[in-house]
Design a protein around this nucleic acid. Structure first.
Lengths: 396, 396
DNA sequence: TAAAAGCACGTAACCGCTTACATTTCAAGT
DNA sequence: ACTTGAAATGTAAGCGGTTACGTGCTTTTA
């Protein structure tokens, strides 16, 4: 009776061919089939051939859920990025995916849209999916997020940013140091009145670090960033353009503008040109990221570059190691390279600039090297991209 | 004896808290816990509260593998794109992910790197993961791919391209018609010697369709595309630039160049400017895609726009419907809108051009309207972006 | 040459959850 | 008062694999 009912129960199933069917066709046990695909050395050649043939004949594709359940390994990795709508994150994901794919891992991608809470939600969803390891851009997530990870002792690594005093393993560059470098460079050109256009820094540790770095540099040179010269808003070209117009509408204009990233810089450059402001003669502008486009359009943007593909790869490799039990999680610092191009030069008032910039007429005069020099010839690329083509590499 | 051994067996498990533990703490059966989270209406309020409390206390996150196995539903969707390194695909994925997330689906992203075989491999991996539905860009996949899908009657939709005679449901625009439109536009400006720079079309149906559309248009006007004027190569700015130099090195230069996409066009424009060729006066250039950047930098590129975010959303919605058993898969054609901007104008030889272009000196002279005009005022946007701001919409 | 040690493969107990069916309870219908 | 049925909960059989153990057999080892 009871047996009847059980037998009558709809034979659930997904309809997909199962390992058991392969086993039946190959006349072996299910265990053997499993071994053929997981530990082939444990199965004789003949049997193996028979099983593979059967599997192929039935178009069998193993069911990942069943496998994950039984083996307690999902072979799924996760990565949380702010948005796919950004070349630099997309590139990181590309690098990571390549590594994970090579190692039989599926990569789950989650976008936080720059919202910490959404980031946490994504992490939870991924934990449900059974990710074995996780990479996350930045460290702006609710503390609870890291508790969850620690609780499950799930290997994770933060990417893009690097802070020597971070409590988490991270792979990236030091935002603060990078902007300090940028500030030093601009100051070395002789600029003393400098404005800044940045993306919002709530929920974005990286941006805050950048601004800190900028301030470090300015402070060291005795220059202050006036409140009126700091514009913070959406990270897009429109805001860059709008901010530039606002900045240049003031009574005393800065001679240089440091932007939080390339998009803002691109917008600012465009707006400046529209206003008839000569770049870099009347105004120097810098970006950050070295988006593919910025070195290919005029005026070629001075910016800083980080090898995001490499960040992705390194993160992938480290996490694969951690998932396998081999390898330890640790931090890796990458260099951010300054790409001096055609949107920076000494200010017109360079004659009155400090010693460093006065020593030699040309020493820091990128303008002379980059823009149409009176001599008519333009040898700028050679000099100009001096740093530009150096490969980025891990800091020793 | 045997019992002893069984009992002694290592208590496997992942270490994660399980539903059973929640049930125990809440003093209910596992079935009830499951119901609380899946069919809450079937559980009384008090019990529900007790269960939720227990789950929260234990930080329980359901195991997706177990759930998938038991329910025969993975709640996983897949999407295959050529590469993440492209704004248009990234945007499609964004749109799709938003919809899927809203519906409790996890989106798996796979990149084929423009390689059909790799695309098939990705599909197989996704089938293993148990995707319930699939979106794929383009239709360039080994036939076997579609067999697999049909075999499992897995709902899928192709995106980006649309062909009324396609055997698959697809959501996108008609590449051929779009390039026909582009060709007609360029011809209407009076151009008769036209060159083309395209990405490779092996393994890329979309590109072939584009070239067909271009040829359709030219043929209708009695113009032929000479072999020497068709340059095919990697879809990047470098190749665009290189091709332009090659084209302009010929004895008789074309007056217009139609590029397969914005990247190629961007490269061509840059190279032309470097050569001192006036755009669009000496040479008109068109792109395709309307990347975010191309309307923000000078000279603003004439191109065509497709709403990729919408494509993603529509695909997501349709597939969600299909996964739920509701809703049918069908094709949707979107418009591709021509964005006439500053890189196209009648050729210098317009005096000898057909009536349409001769009527007014300025009618189609984008150059005059967009670049610094002598008059000082620049009313071009109004006229110029006439079509540019129209929202793209589904073809009725 | 007998005992120990591999090998190759089969058996069956899970993995964590869902869900068909069984059971209990209680208000409504007759 | 008794049947009926809906509502709430429990019981336990899988879902499709993996893998610890067990079972014959063929090689070493002593």
């Amino acid at each position: 009776m009871a047996d009847d009912k059980v037998a009558r129960r709809a034979r659930g199933g997904t309809g997909r061919t199962r390992l058991a069917e392969v086993a039946q066709l190959a006349q072996v046990s299910t265990a053997t089939v499993s071994r053929v695909f997981n530990t082939p050395t444990k199965v004789s050649a003949e049997v193996q051939a028979r099983v593979r043939e059967a599997a192929a004949a039935l178009h069998w594709i193993p069911n990942a859920a069943g496998r994950a359940l039984a083996s307690r390994r999902s072979h799924i990795a996760g990565v949380i990025i702010p948005t796919l709508d950004n070349e630099i994150f997309a590139r990181q994901v590309s690098g990571m995916q390549a590594i994970f794919a090579e190692n039989g891992f599926t990569l789950l991608i989650g976008c936080s849209n720059y919202d910490p809470a959404e980031g946490l939600a994504q992490v939870q969803a991924m934990l449900a999916q059974g990710i074995e390891v996780l990479a996350m851009v930045g460290e702006n997530y609710p503390p609870q997020t890291f508790d969850l990870l620690r609780q499950r002792s799930l290997p994770y690594v933060l990417t893009y940013g690097y802070r020597h005093d971070s409590p988490h393993p991270c792979i990236g560059f030091d935002n603060r140091a990078a902007f300090r470098q940028l500030a030093d460079y601009v100051l070395s050109l002789g600029h003393r009145r400098i404005a800044a256009i940045f993306q919002p820094m709530d929920a974005n540790d990286r941006v805050a670090a950048r601004l800190d770095g900028l301030r470090d540099g300015l402070a060291a040179a005795g220059v202050t960033l006036r409140a009126a010269d700091l514009h913070i808003g959406p990270s897009n070209m429109d805001f860059g353009a709008e901010s530039l117009r606002r900045i240049m509408a003031g009574k005393t204009r800065p001679t240089a503008i440091i932007c939080g990233n390339d998009n803002l810089a691109l917008g600012a450059v465009g707006a400046a040109l529209d206003l008839g402001i000569a770049i870099p003669h009347d105004l120097s502008i810098t970006g950050f990221d070295d988006l593919a486009i910025v070195s290919r359009i005029a005026p070629r943007l001075t910016t800083m570059r980080v090898d995001n593909l490499e960040i992705g790869r390194l993160a992938g490799e480290m996490l694969i190691g951690a998932a396998g039990g081999r390898g330890m999680l640790h931090s890796i610092e990458l260099r951010a390279d300054l790409c001096m191009r055609a949107t920076t030069s000494p200010p017109r008032s360079a004659a009155r600039a400090p010693a460093a910039a006065r020593d030699s007429d040309n020493a820091n005069d990128h303008q002379a090297r980059n823009q149409q020099p009176h001599a008519g010839i333009r040898p700028q690329r050679v000099q100009h991209d001096l740093q530009e083509d150096k490969k980025q590499r891990r800091t020793p």
